[in-house]
Design a protein around this nucleic acid. Sequence first.
DNA 1: CGCCGGGTTGAATTATCTCAACCTGGGTGG
DNA 2: CCACCCAGGTTGAGATAATTCAACCCGGCG
Lengths: 242, 242
Amino acid sequence: MTSAPADPLVRRLTAFGTLGPGEIDLLREAIQRPASVGPRADLSSQNGKGAKARLLVAGWAARQRVLSDGRRQIVGFVLPGDFVSFSLHRAPLRYANTVTLTQAVLAEADMLLEACTAQSYASPLAATMRAIAAVEEALLAHHVTRLGRQTAYERLSHLFLELRERLALAGIEPGDTFTLPMTQEVLADALGLSVVHTNRTLQQLRRDGLIRMSGVKVTLVDAAALAALSDYVPLTRLVART
Amino acid sequence: MTSAPADPLVRRLTAFGTLGPGEIDLLREAIQRPASVGPRADLSSQNGKGAKARLLVAGWAARQRVLSDGRRQIVGFVLPGDFVSFSLHRAPLRYANTVTLTQAVLAEADMLLEACTAQSYASPLAATMRAIAAVEEALLAHHVTRLGRQTAYERLSHLFLELRERLALAGIEPGDTFTLPMTQEVLADALGLSVVHTNRTLQQLRRDGLIRMSGVKVTLVDAAALAALSDYVPLTRLVART
DNA sequence: CGCCGGGTTGAATTATCTCAACCTGGGTGG
DNA sequence: CCACCCAGGTTGAGATAATTCAACCCGGCG
């Protein structure tokens, strides 16, 4: 609707594909009826009836899967400009539910999906949507690698670099300092660690002068060192520009 | 081309979406020039020039990411009827390379992608392709949860159930016994474990009477118990039938 | 004031890893 | 046809990353 709330999306899209001004206008029109929800809201359940595709315009959310004994694994974080469900699906995910970590603004985006498939495979809009899906897959591959083959110290470094890059791509907080609106428990559940060990590892990173934390803000003091120790490959290098 | 090699794909597609006979014929025509490659072949590199989408018609492959110090993480397995690259992308993945685990047959599938986007969002073919993407995401979510929050014992059980289900969905080896064409090292790299611990955990599963192994064959002796202990949710229950 | 969520610390326990050796069967070359 | 070789599997034992449990602290808030 208004140009302001759509900006993170537009920024992210233009990071991986080139759109003409007409297409950007189409994008903005396709995003409808923004609505605000509070923190800790479950976005999956609300989606039952209409099966709308929704876009996160502001705030943070997490996709998570809870095992029957209560263990929780966070599968991914949803940032402004991301779709609530993976890969442009309309239907909600059955295998994971999405919960907000902060106050958030959501908009409906069904028209966007339809506009996308209404065009040819080679159209800029379709290519851009494929790029979004590709980024999502790269994020999942990153996450799998972190969990499977990296130490706690590496996992935290790697995740912080990834979040920083995503925020920068969306045009939010482009510097080395960013807001991390989550408790250490959420971080632990994302990285497959216990809260205690997450806490101690964060301290180690601070003591080593690699990061700084104050309240909800994180500063990557030495991003190069973090990247080297955690073998971080930027998303921009992983996803081909179409 | 011929109907035989396309069957795993057709079986898989019809598992999640209903296609008319005309559409199935279109599918078969869209799969072109099957070619055979040996085991341990890197499929990513071969893809540089034409950027073709390719479909695995027979054999097994693995998508993997190798860290700079040599640690390897297998991000997923590619079975007959799967696309070599994720989610219908034409371009190869930069963040992972795909290697064959066995002798394999590959076919080109660019026409399939184009046929898909040439139709409307609501068309059966487009819906079917979205279902394929959804399954791929569910597999990744499974994998993340295994690696992040499950023990070695649970991870092996869970993966075995998943592979069994995928083979059954594709119409290959529908029973409780199936071929597992990989060394324990590959299994370890998929599950984020050491080879030694993978070996011991497999023995434990055998001693507990849950599985049986002879050569390259695995039998799930008590699939229900495996599902209960590893909290396995079938893909058919995770992915909405469109 | 007193509670409470979230962070921090200590100490014991455990899952998993590393290293190193040894075994086995199938294939190869002499 | 035997001797070797090698990949892959198995076993033992010590090391360590990470977990669990438990306590304590702190700032915000009703």
